[in-house]
Amino acid sequence: MSKRNQHVVPRDDGWAIRGAGAKRDTGHFDRKQDAVDRAREITQNQGTELVIHGRDGQIQSKDSHGHDPSPPKG
């Protein structure tokens, strides 16, 4: 499996996980939270970013698990 950001996206019959640039979904779920939980596991293992979309397709939030070149100071 290549390292790519994972997107949780709406589908007519539920929610899917799709790697950035992928032609097919990685997984399909009835509940959004189940898709987010699985996508978070994938991105934590890969050190990539999780992008969560709303029902309208717009990005709701992002969660980075990779190397942050600009970590918060403090």
Rank of each mutant, 00 (worst) to 15 (best):
Q44G: 14
Q58H: 09
V51F: 05
K32G: 02
D56M: 03
S2Q: 12
R40I: 01
H65I: 00
T48Q: 03
R11N: 08
H53G: 09
H53W: 05
Q58A: 15
G54F: 00
R24M: 06
K62H: 07
P71L: 07
I17E: 02
D13C: 04
H53Y: 05
D68S: 09
Q33L: 13
S64I: 03
D56K: 11
K73V: 11
T26D: 11
V9R: 13
N5F: 00
Q46Y: 08
P69M: 07
H65K: 04
Q6N: 04
I52T: 13
Q60D: 14
Q58V: 04
D13E: 14
G74A: 11
R31T: 04
V36I: 15
T43Y: 02
V9P: 03
V9Y: 07
V9C: 13
K23S: 15
A35Q: 01
T48V: 13
Q6S: 10
H67Q: 10
G19R: 01
I52R: 03
R11M: 13
H53M: 07
H28L: 10
M1G: 14
W15H: 06
G14V: 05
R31K: 15
R40W: 05
K62I: 06
G47C: 08
E41I: 07
P69W: 08
G66S: 05
V51Y: 02
G57P: 02
R4E: 12
R11V: 10
D12I: 11
R24E: 08
K3Y: 05
K62L: 07
N5P: 03
N45K: 11
Q33R: 15
G21M: 06
A39H: 02
G66A: 06
A20N: 10
A22W: 04
Q44R: 15
V36E: 07
L50P: 03
T26L: 10
H65Q: 07
M1F: 08
